[in-house]
């Protein structure tokens, strides 16, 4: 019995070697490592693949993509990067901050460029210098939130609101930097920010109940844990007729009232174009500054507005990039 198992393990090892060595000419191989599984990050990935395609790298034609998702486990994330390195990928695309850091840390001295996306603060993550230049063989795009635009929109939709509730996970550094910005800007729009920090997804129901007692509306960040449990939060908020604002299009689609957000697909596309430049050899990642998307769009959900008895301001609706008239589950 024991021998059989060792035999199986050995053959599995051997197989993986053979797969690893099977590399054809002229096909570019990239590894895409995504930190968590949710709409925004998925859009990022799809946009990235589109961006490569627009620039001459077509999947299953001249481009081979190895995709893996760490499911929010940083230790697994590290091993995914090691696997990419052992498969000798030409470039690693890392989606979300911890993944970007694993990729950058893991590829030092390995001569594999890293392109990241959905990193809110590349400077704080030490992936870029304060002047936006790269710290090494790494570059990418940031998904910094349009905080003032979002606050202005909330003020326009809810003229009498005073307290905005924000839930965030204490372990997500993206959220912490966003909260800081909200805190600094809230007073300019006559708001007070009520925060509720949670440790795990299991804390969300209780935290939601508590914060809903204290606020006029909720506002989401791009917090991975909170966004993953958004339907549960929306359910509770709807029962109390408290509007919830999203941070990007996917959240509006599933039932947030409105959002000024960036299009993660576009962000991914921009990142894909940067990756193509590196793959073609036209530029080195180390000489590319990280980029941001500076166009933000309004997304609204007219079904949610109707249920809450709120009228969305006309000028916002007119300029909307997309309006939803149903709640997608």
């Amino acid at each position: 019995m024991k021998k059989t198992i060792y035999l199986v393990l050995t053959s599995v090892l051997l197989m993986s070697v053979l797969i690893g060595c099977n590399k054809k000419e002229k096909i570019t191989t990239i590894g895409i490592a995504q930190f968590a599984d949710h709409g925004s990050l998925d859009n990022c990935r799809e946009g990235f693949i589109q961006g490569l395609k627009d620039n001459g790298y077509v999947e299953n034609d001249n481009l081979k993509i190895i995709y893996d998702n760490a499911q929010e486990d940083g230790v697994i994330g590290n091993q995914i990067i090691t696997n990419f390195i052992s498969k000798k990928v030409d470039l690693i695309a890392a989606i979300a901050t911890p993944m970007a850091q694993s990729a950058y840390g893991g590829t030092k001295n390995k001569n594999i460029p890293v392109v990241y996306t959905a990193v809110t603060d590349p400077v704080l993550a030490e992936l870029a210098n304060p002047d936006k230049t790269s710290v090494g063989n790494v570059t990418g795009t940031s998904d910094i939130l349009p905080v003032t635009e979002q606050l202005a929109m909330i003020r326009a939709i809810l003229p009498n609101a005073k307290k905005i509730g924000i839930m965030y996970t204490t372990s997500e550094s993206n959220s912490l930097s966003a909260i800081k910005e909200y805190r600094a800007a809230a007073a300019d729009y006559g708001f007070e920010i009520i925060e509720s920090g949670i440790a795990t997804a299991a804390d969300i129901p209780l935290a939601t109940d508590q914060i809903l007692e204290k606020v006029d509306c909720l506002n989401n960040l791009t917090d991975n844990t909170v966004v993953s449990s958004l339907s549960a939060i929306l359910n509770k908020a709807n029962k109390k007729s408290i509007p919830v604002f999203g941070s990007e299009v996917e959240q509006v689609k599933i039932g947030c009232l409105a959002s000024i957000g960036l299009d993660y697909f576009d962000l991914g596309k921009k990142t894909g174009a940067m990756a193509a430049l590196i793959l073609k050899g036209e530029k080195q990642a180390s000489e590319m500054e990280f980029e941001v998307i500076d166009e933000y769009s309004f997304y609204g959900n007219s079904k949610v507005a109707e249920d809450l008895g709120i009228i969305l301001p006309e000028d916002y609706v007119k300029s909307a990039k997309e309006m939803f008239n149903e709640v997608v589950q």
Binding site: L9, V12, L13, M15, S16, I19, G20, D37, I66, D68, N69, A70, Q71, D73, I76, Q79, I80, T82, N83, S86, K87
Partner: peptide
């Protein structure tokens, strides 16, 4: 242990199954 995880990842098994 780490070898098993690495082989599983290398074979393309998703992290959710690890």
């Amino acid at each position: 242990y780490k070898a098993c995880v690495a082989i599983a990842i290398s074979l393309g098994l998703p992290a959710s199954d690890l």
